[in-house]
C-alpha cells in the first residue's frame, strides 16, 4: 500500500519534469554548404582548356580538397561558434561531360545549428592536426578519412588537396605525357593547413526549421597565385607551372609551394547566400 502511494506521488513529478523540457528545446535550422569551382570566373570543368598565361593553356584532370572545422560565429570577435562540419571531402573534378553536375556543385551536409543571426563563417582547408595524426587504417570503409588515395604514409599526412592536370608548355595544342607536360600538386602536412573566417556583408540568418544554402565558390586559377619571386620568374603573379609542376611537400621547394597554394584558398574563396 505504501509502495503504491509512493509511485502515485512520484508519477506526476516525473511527468511534470518531462514536460518541463519542451520549452527548453533548442530552436534549430538546417544549413547546406554547396561547393562550386570556377576558373577565372568561368565554370570549372576537368578536361577543358583554359588559358593559364598568354600562349600557354592548361587542362585539369582532378580537383578535390578536404574541408574541416566549418562553423558559424555569432560575433566577429567572439569564440561563440556553432560547428557545422568537423571534416568532409569535396570533389569538384566534374568533367566536360558533367556540366550540369559541375553547376550544381558538391554539397556538404551539416549538423543542425541554433537558429539566429551569425556574423562569421569559419572554414578550414585541409585536415586539422588532430585528425592528421590518424590514418585511413583507423577508419571503416566509407568514412571520408578512409581514402588511401589521399594519404601519404612516408610523411604521416593526409593529402589535403589534389590539383592535377596538364599544361601545354610548347603551345602545340597537344598535352604530352611523354614530354612531361603533366602537373600534380598533392598538398598536405600540418604546416600547410589553412583556416579562414569570412564576414559576409549580410549576416547569415538561420531560421527555425528552415534550410539555408550557403555557396562556397573557389576560383581555381587564384590557387596558383604566387607572390614569391623565385617561383614567378614571369612576373605575372602566377606560379611558373611549366617549371614547378608538382608539390608533394617532400623537397623544401615543394613545401614552400604547397604552403602558398593552400594559403591561396583563402583569397580564392567567395561566400554566397
Amino acid at each position: 500500500m505504501r509502495k503504491i502511494l509512493i509511485i502515485l506521488i512520484s508519477l506526476p513529478i516525473f511527468i511534470a519534469s518531462s514536460c518541463d523540457k519542451d520549452p527548453e528545446m533548442e530552436v534549430v535550422g538546417d544549413v547546406e554548404i554547396i561547393f562550386r569551382a570556377n576558373y577565372d570566373g568561368e565554370l570549372f570543368l576537368t578536361q577543358k582548356d583554359y588559358e593559364y598565361i598568354p600562349d600557354m593553356s592548361i587542362k585539369f584532370s582532378t580537383f578535390d580538397l578536404y574541408v574541416s572545422n566549418i562553423s558559424l560565429l555569432k560575433e566577429e570577435s567572439s569564440t561563440d561558434e556553432s560547428e557545422l562540419v568537423e571534416i568532409d571531402f569535396v570533389d569538384l573534378s566534374f568533367d566536360i561531360n558533367q556540366q550540369s553536375r559541375a553547376e550544381e556543385g558538391d554539397t556538404v551536409f551539416t549538423k543542425k545549428v541554433p537558429a539566429g543571426s551569425y556574423k562569421g563563417f569559419k572554414i578550414g582547408f585541409g585536415v586539422p592536426a588532430d585528425l592528421n595524426r590518424t590514418s585511413p587504417n583507423d577508419y571503416g570503409s566509407g568514412d571520408v578519412l578512409a581514402t588511401s588515395s589521399h594519404y601519404w604514409a612516408p610523411l604521416d599526412s593526409y593529402i589535403f588537396s589534389k590539383i592535377e592536370g596538364f599544361v601545354d608548355k610548347d603551345n602545340d595544342g597537344i598535352y604530352e605525357t611523354s614530354e612531361g607536360e603533366g602537373f600534380t600538386f598533392h598538398l598536405g602536412r600540418d604546416e600547410v593547413y589553412t583556416e579562414r573566417i569570412i564576414f559576409p556583408s549580410d549576416p547569415i540568418v538561420v531560421e527555425d526549421g528552415q534550410k539555408l544554402e550557403i555557396y562556397i565558390d573557389i576560383d581555381v586559377k587564384k590557387l596558383f597565385n604566387m607572390p614569391i619571386d623565385q617561383f614567378d620568374t614571369n612576373d605575372d603573379n602566377l606560379l611558373d607551372i611549366e617549371v614547378y609542376d608538382g608539390a608533394h611537400g617532400n623537397q623544401e621547394e615543394e613545401l614552400i609551394i604547397a604552403k602558398q597554394l593552400m594559403r591561396n584558398y583563402s583569397e580564392a574563396t567567395l561566400l554566397e547566400q
Binding site: 578536361q47 592535377e164 612531361g180
Partner: peptide, 11 residues
C-alpha cells in the same frame, strides 16, 4: 612517360 592519350593520368 607512357603513350599519348586524351585522359592519361598526369602522374
Amino acid at each position: 612517360g607512357g603513350k599519348h592519350g586524351p585522359n592519361v593520368s598526369p602522374l
